[in-house]
Design a protein around this nucleic acid. Structure first.
Length: 111
DNA sequence: TCACTGACCGTGG
DNA sequence: ACCACGGCCAGTG
């Protein structure tokens, strides 16, 4: 069992992207939930790091639906424009204010 | 090779 | 209720 001989890290990236793509429209997810959903052996930090490569991969990943536990758009600065993330979320019917998702807990989606 | 940083989270004082 | 610290893994200088 054994242990996956090959590096899990690469698989882990793919898992993160797959899960994020699975997030339904109008819903959001947190880094911690994703990390736990992938096995819990990973840190939420790595999830964010994985998203760092989500810019040049295909198909595109709706990273705008991934926020921190606080419901705050922490990664908005990593997007094409700092307002793109809030804009996309607003288009999905989410209410954003001060870079924070209103009623965030009510829009959280879990795998 | 060592050290620091980074789209985080949880617990303690 | 708020502030501070540690833990986690990987990539870059």
């Amino acid at each position: 069992m054994p242990t996956p001989p090959t590096s899990d890290t690469k698989d882990f990236y793919q898992k993160v992207y797959a899960l994020v793509r699975k997030i339904p429209k109008g819903k959001v997810c947190t880094y911690g939930i994703i990390g736990e959903a992938l096995g819990g052996r990973i840190s939420a930090r790595m999830v964010g790091w994985a998203m760092n490569g989500a810019h040049h991969i295909t198909p595109p990943v709706p990273a705008h639906r991934v926020v921190n536990r606080n419901g705050m758009l922490t990664g908005k600065f990593h997007f094409a424009t700092p307002t793109l993330m809030a804009d996309l979320l607003a288009q999905e019917g989410l209410q954003i204010e001060n870079d924070i998702i209103l009623n965030f807990k009510n829009h959280v989606w879990q795998p």
